[in-house]
């Protein structure tokens, strides 16, 4: 599986990371080095093997679906780059 410049551009966009056009070839090369290394997994016979979902054989704990926390709007907003009138502010999303 070889990653070309178009694929690198598409992956960068999916990851929401701006990458300059000039940097895409080097990025594609790095992806290919890493994915080339990962290719060896194809040697392993995984027929009938369950993919691991939890390294500890335990059922995740459950609890009653009820509010256990809250009423701390000021703390939630404290670190926001732009908070106004009790909300997180972002550029206009809807035209």
């Amino acid at each position: 599986m070889s990653i070309d410049i178009d694929t690198a551009r598409r992956v960068a966009h999916l990851a929401r990371i701006a990458v300059n056009e000039d940097d895409l070839p080097a990025l594609a090369d790095e992806f290919n080095a890493i994915l080339g290394f990962v290719e060896q997994l194809n040697e392993v016979d995984v027929d009938g093997v369950e993919p691991m979902t939890s390294v500890t054989p335990m059922r995740l704990k459950r609890r009653v679906d009820e509010v256990t926390d809250g009423n701390q709007q000021d703390k939630v907003l404290k670190n926001a780059p732009d908070a106004r009138e009790g909300f997180f502010a972002v550029p206009k999303v809807v035209e």
Partner: peptide, 10 residues
């Protein structure tokens, strides 16, 4: 595939 290999490693 990687998750299956992980099962085998364990």
């Amino acid at each position: 595939r990687a998750r299956k290999v992980r099962t085998l490693i364990k």
